[in-house]
Write a protein that binds this DNA or RNA. Sequence first.
DNA 1: CCCGACTGAAAACCCAGAAC
DNA 2: GTTCTGGGTTTTCAGTCGGG
Length: 306
Amino acid sequence: MGIEVDLQRTTEVVEKALIAMDNRQKLFSKGVFRPEKTFIEMVKGYGERIIRPAFASNALFLTTAFVFGDDTERLFERIANTRYLFEYSWIFDPKEAMNKSDEEIMAGCTEFFRPAGYNRRVVSEWPYNLKLLERKFGGDIRNFFNKHDRNMEKIVQALVVRPRAKTMEKKKNGTFTRYGPKIATLVVQWMNQYGLYKFNNSNGGGVPVDFQVTRVLIQTGAVKLDRPENAHQITTLVGRTLGLISSEHGWQLRRISESLWNIGSQGCNQKRHADCPLQKECDRLISRKPYDKDGLFDPKDTGRWE
DNA sequence: CCCGACTGAAAACCCAGAAC
DNA sequence: GTTCTGGGTTTTCAGTCGGG
């Protein structure tokens, strides 16, 4: 059988998730969980206070790279502190950073973000990205977006280069590093959602497909597997399918992403099955272990009913 | 009651090298 | 050449527990 994405079933599940989100059903009763919100509002406010129009856009663009291999809620809780932001605002300022060594920049970056594990690599790429931003785009990420016709797809494409592009390849290309298919789409989604940049097409760029989004679709039978399969292949297929469904039904990509991600991270991940709007659609709980350990999605039930 | 020590879970991916 | 496969890697925080 291999990997089979059931278009009909995916549509059904997505529609139910959207309805639940809109009607504040079950785990959506307190609204949509947006761990990034406080921090983004904080950088916007700070940028206005220091009268630097590029500050918030730059800060969000650079920070989003850290939404890799970290707990998003904990990450934003750690850094959403006005005193810290004031003290470390220079790490988001391309001009000021030009006067500092890579080591100094990396040290400041580590102190501010206190990276949790995998995303330490973001720290080592920070000086490169920051200096590229200054040299090539005049210290304003919005110039990079302008260069790609303010078009979400083109911007994501320029950041990703190609799936699994090597860091060196991106550097040769003169583009930013640490932005893969998930993070690149997440950046444009947030930039648009929080009004940090006006794109020409506000519903492009795709859905950031991660473990949580995919697990919901596997557990509800929208993605059918009869044995463990490669995670990258599945997330690519899922991304394509969700894009298709979005344009077919006129559903916003951001809303599809938020509804499924909320159900996965706030529901399944915390075993709140009784509080899940997709409870009746779902017949299992899959483990994250094979995903981290072997890069696989294992369809096996690990005990939703325990 | 409050510490420090300890444990376990969690993480909106990327890349080298093998296989076509 | 391009595509695919398999696997890496580390900090943080909440929860628990025993000793002082």
